[in-house]
Write a protein that binds this DNA or RNA. Structure first.
Length: 433
RNA sequence: GGAGAGGUACCCGAGUGGCCAAAGGGAACAGACUGUAAAUCUGUCAGCAUACGCUUUCGGAGGUUCGAAUCCUCCCCUCUCCA
């Protein structure tokens, strides 16, 4: 994480302009507070998987924006809340995770957060809510916290209504109390005044702010980020092959770059606001762009987003791999000038393209293409591979394969590799060594 | 604990003895068109097999039958109402 200097200006307005603000409990006092002092704020993340994914990114970038303006974000690893499971937006109960899994997942989260936030002294904090939730005393908790919650009221929330149809266990019904308690604890121990989260968390966030008001007789604020869907109406960060992870082991920088490049035209300007630090004045001009001109803006989006998550070197490699696969695109100097994206001709770099190794001996055995594809996991089964070939969707070195019994051979090797392509975009090189 | 409804492929959902590897829709993948976008049209979408075909699938385990997603028995799970 590069050191960043504190940016002057109104964070609240800046975040509003970038699209981060969906709902706020009390806009004016919050805005005042953010102008006057360094505010401690938090977002909770339950470690229910072994990596964060693009769906978490909005909240992370939100914290990052605040930090850049001199505020102090706390990232909560929900080691305790993950044990319970948030019912919000879920139509059925999540399978229970063991404490060991949660701890292991939390460790991964920690590493990932430090790529977006500066955890230097007094800059940001990372805490695990298991530290206090783990040792809660049931009776005390009921008496001190539980008495502030009205079941009648909770049952009117849409999220619980929905679950009342399908079944909601008492365990999950308590999630909101725990999250509210988190806010209270952070208020007491770190002076945290603001909780943020996705808009689906609104009720939980309000519950926390209310709890602080009742128990501490102090104002606390809540802010929600819009729930991002793509212009096509899909949930953000999901692709055919599952979530887009922030862990390079799970989603390679190349795939990550491709994910952003493949954004819907209608999403590009919005995403630039959320997922890059480029100034809004420049992003505004992207909104004017039409048609294919947007492709250059997509390069910038993909490059900047990959830079933030995986670093500049990885972003450049991903870009060069894309250039090798799809051809180079020169970026006009006037477009988003603050971006450090390479703008001239980029030399293609096949090496960064996804691929696997093949020994000359393996190749000499003339393996059938169908078998190779299945073995590499590029297709679900050999039948799947066959159908793909029959449908004209398989290419070797850019030539369509039309024989389902096609076998690989030395003759296909060009510059030490065979480039396999499935459909229009999925490249996989077989490196011979 | 009592009464009722139900569990079908990635999801929704039709099917109530053979014509069912299971309608229809969605998602997904491929092709055409394009701009690595969207929309549209076409095809594919359990596994193995070049193919004839074979194997496994309709909550689970047994059974009836020449033949079961469909009928019977037991079990598991979900929902609704009652307590």
């Amino acid at each position: 994480m590069e050191k960043i200097s504190v940016i002057q200006g109104n964070v609240y307005q800046e975040m509003g302009r970038r699209g981060f603000i969906q709902q706020v409990t009390d806009p004016e006092p919050l805005q005042d507070m953010l102008q006057k002092e360094a505010v401690t704020c938090y977002v909770g993340f339950d470690p229910t998987a072994d990596s964060l994914h693009v769906g978490h990114l909005m909240a992370i970038m939100g914290m990052s924006q605040l930090q850049r303006h001199g505020h102090r974000p706390i990232a909560i690893i929900g080691g305790g809340t993950a044990m319970v499971g948030d019912p919000t937006g879920k139509t059925e109960m999540r399978k229970m995770l063991t404490r060991e899994q949660i701890v292991a997942n939390g460790e991964k989260f920690k590493v990932q957060f430090s790529r977006y936030l500066d955890f230097g002294p007094d800059k940001a904090l990372m805490v695990d809510n298991y530290d206090w939730l783990g040792e809660l005393k049931y009776i005390e908790f009921l008496r001190d916290i539980g008495r502030h919650f009205s079941v009648n009221r909770m049952l009117t929330y849409e999220t619980y209504k929905m679950r009342l149809e399908k079944g909601l266990s008492f365990l999950e019904f308590n999630y909101q109390l725990l999250q509210a308690y988190d806010f209270l604890m952070l208020f007491k121990t770190h002076g945290c005044r603001l909780q943020m989260g996705g808009d689906d968390q609104w009720a939980n966030i309000l519950a926390g702010a209310d709890l602080i008001r009742r128990v501490e007789e102090c104002d606390a604020y809540g802010l929600t980020f819009p729930l991002l869907t793509t212009a096509a109406g899909k949930k953000m960060g999901k692709t055919e092959s599952g979530a887009v992870w922030l862990d390079p082991e799970k989603t390679s920088p190349y795939e990550y770059y491709q994910y952003w490049y493949n954004s819907d035209d209608r999403d590009v300007a919005r995403f630039l606001g959320f997922f890059t630090y480029l100034p809004m004045e420049e992003i505004e001009t992207v909104k004017e762009l039409q048609g294919a001109d947007l492709n250059s803006a997509k390069v910038v989006l993909a490059y900047e987003a990959t830079c933030i998550t995986h670093g500049e070197t990885a972003a450049q490699e991903a870009m060069r791999a894309a250039a090798a696969a799809f051809g180079c695109r020169e970026i006009p100097a006037a477009l988003l000038p603050s971006s450090s994206v390479p703008r001239g001709a980029v030399t293609g770099n096949e090496a960064a393209m996804p691929g696997s190794d093949l020994t000359p001996a393996q190749l000499a055995a003339a393996p059938r293409l169908v078998d190779v594809m299945a073995e590499l996991g590029l297709v679900a089964s050999k039948g799947d591979a066959r159908r793909l070939i029959q449908g004209g969707g398989v290419y070797l070195n850019n030539e369509r394969v039309d024989d389902i019994n096609f076998s690989l051979s030395m003759a296909l090797v060009q510059e030490g590799r065979i480039v396999l392509r499935l459909g229009k975009k999925r490249f996989h090189q077989l490196v011979i060594r």
